[in-house]
Design a protein around this nucleic acid. Structure first.
Length: 229
DNA sequence: GTCCTATACCGCATTACATCA
DNA sequence: CCTGATGTAATGCGGTATAGG
């Protein structure tokens, strides 16, 4: 149901005219900013509803001494400004998320490089003959998780060739020690580490692990065992 | 029921003006 | 006083929805 015509509601109709040769707007010398009182009232109405019913619009216009058209335009402009503001906020959030993600990516990249070096060292090591006395060793990996908590993982190989993992917090002497697995599961580990490289798939080779800082370069935000998950 | 016209309203881009540093 | 930047009221246009002939 149409309650009034746009032309009836157009403000300043007596001063807004058009030249016969062009559609360009003529200067409107009656343009006045709305009073603080009017703005305050419109703002509070916008907070409760961003669109006005035609009847409500007429009522508001009457109350504020404005033309209904002016109220409609104010709401229209207000919606546009609000949308712009929202977009800016959304952009800020996206930007923050992106920065966070980029930082994680860089971290993972460094992690990957470190692991590649470690893998190379491991490859070199397992090629050494057992006689060289490389039967026992311990490697400690310091890392931090997503919560920023530091932790460490120790990989030990004993004279029997048993591998054991202990995990705990570096700042906590009561670190929980956990035997992770024994020789019979080493083959599984090998397939996780490098399924495409049979140079690491022999349990024999793992008995020669040494602690010459293979994992020392690890110092990123993720436990190394999550890297392949 | 369908088409056509008139009207109202919207979003968007832009203009015109007021205000301020 | 002048000037450029900024905020905002108002305009124009294209599109959609709806009522009535």
């Amino acid at each position: 149901m149409l309650e009034y015509t746009e032309e009836m509601a157009r403000p300043f109709s007596s001063v807004t005219e058009y030249t016969p040769t062009t559609t360009k707007k003529k200067k409107n010398k009656n343009k006045r900013r709305f009073s603080d009182e009017q703005i305050k009232s419109l703002e509070s109405m916008f907070e409760s509803e961003t669109r006005l019913e035609p009847r409500k619009k007429l009522q508001v216009a009457k109350e504020l001494g404005l033309q209904p058209r002016q109220v409609a335009i104010w709401f229209q402009n207000k919606r546009a400004r609000w949308k712009t503001k929202q977009l800016e906020q959304d952009y800020s959030i996206l930007q923050a998320n992106y920065d966070n993600l980029a930082a994680k990516y860089e971290c993972l990249k460094k992690e990957k490089q470190a692991l590649a070096i470690q893998l190379q060292k491991l490859n070199d090591l397992i090629k050494k003959p057992k006689e060289e006395g490389q039967c026992c060793g311990q490697v400690t990996v310091t890392n931090c998780n997503n919560d920023g908590d530091k932790g460490e993982t120790t990989v030990k190989s004993d004279s029997e060739g048993q591998l054991s993992f202990s995990m705990g917090r570096s700042d906590d002497d009561s670190a929980i020690k956990t035997d992770y697995f024994g020789v019979e599961e080493e083959a599984n580990l090998m397939s996780v580490v490098d399924p495409g490289d049979d140079s690491l798939t022999s349990p024999e080779d793992w008995r020669s692990l040494d602690s010459d800082g293979l994992f020392d370069q690890w110092n990123c935000g993720y436990p190394w065992w999550d890297f392949w998950s």
